[in-house]
Design a protein around this nucleic acid. Sequence first.
DNA 1: CCAGTGATGTCAGTTCCTGACGTCAGTATA
DNA 2: TATACTGACGTCAGGAACTGACATCACTGG
Lengths: 189, 189
Amino acid sequence: MGRWEPNAQGRLAEAALELFLERGFEQTTVAEIAERAGLTERTFFRHFSDKREVLFGRGGGLSTLMTDAVKDAPPSARPMDAVAAALEATAVVFDEARRPFARRRQAVISANPELQERELVKLSSLVEDMKAALHLRGVKDPEATFAAEAGITVFRIAFDRWVEESEQRDLRRLLRISLKDLRSVLATS
Amino acid sequence: MGRWEPNAQGRLAEAALELFLERGFEQTTVAEIAERAGLTERTFFRHFSDKREVLFGRGGGLSTLMTDAVKDAPPSARPMDAVAAALEATAVVFDEARRPFARRRQAVISANPELQERELVKLSSLVEDMKAALHLRGVKDPEATFAAEAGITVFRIAFDRWVEESEQRDLRRLLRISLKDLRSVLATS
DNA sequence: CCAGTGATGTCAGTTCCTGACGTCAGTATA
DNA sequence: TATACTGACGTCAGGAACTGACATCACTGG
């Protein structure tokens, strides 16, 4: 047995989510989160750069998933095809089992503007990563920029629907529908 | 002559922009901004909800401009045509004379993640307003959502280019090019 | 002339976040 | 085995962003 209980970061994240659901984000102090996790406030800030970040720490994997899919798309694929592949790749992670957790998390975020702010930043950095992946395929700007932007827009809207829908609905399905909707709105008659 | 110097809010905004350019956003305290404007820290927070907001206070007009244009678009206009009209409407405000100010402001924002965060929020609320304006035209979701999202994406990218371009280039022109580019990326072969 | 209003000032307090430093089990190395 | 090193955590002090409560006092309407 080590000197401390294992998985400090996970305990902090779990304690935070619980408290945010119980009394709200602003009504929860970092000291309280740390206390519930059996740690101190200072240690919290060693694991998370700020109070909001405790809800977003796991977000890094999504970027890898998407950029890998872009990289692995066949050379013949046009930019938006590669982006579509990236979207499909995310659907693997967000399966039905994941939904309850996603729902709890989104409930906290939608209840607080500061957290929505941080979510926008995360999505924006997904755009940057996707753009970079497209550049590696030889796609130039502004094509890469718009393809990446369009892709993340589709992801965001499909994901929102996936989280809130009461009926069970595959994320992959929602992604395809959303991409089709976006294309349709932008189609020149 | 009034009891106080007039235009406290404007003095605070100007003092803030100056100081942010001189030493950076983080290296500037609210107390320093207030002092340069001849006021106190407490008064700063009466005019701006937080330190970042001092750079974004003037953003409200843009929303009105866009939503009015959506409202006034001919009934025959399809959703994306109404959005295009909204984009054109913004170009009136950002003329060549406005560019130096916009450039100073963007310089401060691009140098600081916290400020970029706030800018994303402002753009996101523009999306919401545009979406609402489209709903008033009878456009349903998800069409309204995607049209609004696409419109703000185009605005953001065209605006960025307008700010950074060295050559003089009309914002209206850049908006049209960007919309065309987005359409082209999303076109089904 | 006088009560009311509103923009500002003053003061005290909470919370977020940071830097400096101490502690101590586990681990590597001589 | 002795000794130094490392890494995760704790302790303490403090800066800066905000907030609530209350005071001030030129101006304004009656």
